[in-house]
Amino acid sequence: MISYEFLTTQKIEEALNYLDKFSKVHILAGGTDLLVNLYKESPRLPDFDYLLDISNIPELKIINSINKFIEIGPLVTHSRLINEPLIKNNFPVLMEAAYTIGSTQIRNRGTIGGNIVNASPAADLLPPLIALRAEVELTSRKGKRVLPLEEFLAGPYKTKLQANELLTKIKIPLLSDNYYTDFQKIGRRKALSIARLSLALVTKIDEEGIFQDTRVVPGSATPYPQSLPVTEEAINGISIFQINLEEIGKITSNEMVSITGERWSTPYKKPTIAVLIKRALERIIKEAKTNE
């Protein structure tokens, strides 16, 4: 049995004060990761004396469009990501990923902030968010800092969040019109399914049909989600009319294995990650061609 004191507040200021004043405070948002860990007494849980419930802070639930960025409060639930026009219209890839998370109940409770800070290798929002070049705003009594999400992640279930910090915003730069996105996920069943493998693709296709600024981020493929620069470079500069999908698939497979080494699951993941990148590219190419 893990015992702790329960703290709750409706104000960011007060939450930051708690984080500053007390040591060993753990933050509770939707609780869909945390409560499972509590029940299991998971070794992943840090040692803590206080549980700080932030779920009643209205400011952390806002979605806004500001200065070429969409800003998402960390308490925005997966269900809201699916239904919010600002997300749907600008980042369909995020919506698609959110839609594959858990079940209706989990999507109604689980939050984007929790998904990020929990930093699971299988977290479904991480690949699209990294691919979208999302940034996280971290706030403490001492001030704010902003980090690219990819840099914020420090390992499986590890981030660079400081003990006195709160994740207060996720900022995603808007994409120009000639960007295309896709999300692919394989699970063992159709719902309540942790990704066996997933992949987010964000890329620009210029007027000549040339890939540029490609971002490829798989999930459940590497110890924690990270982009695949070799694959991205292999795609950049190639025309949608000439791209050799088989070859790209191979490059992606090899890049994944170069990161993970041969693991028990490699015989399955190596061929299927090639399939996911191919499918993502195929879908985007088709869309680009119909847009012409």
């Binding site: 394989i186 066996r196 399955y268 061929p271």
Partner: peptide, 16 residues
């Protein structure tokens, strides 16, 4: 008939 059996013809597990 899980993912691995359908794709590879055999199952995989952490133990090998």
């Amino acid at each position: 008939l899980n993912l691995e059996r359908v794709l590879l013809g055999h199952s995989l597990s952490k133990g090998g």
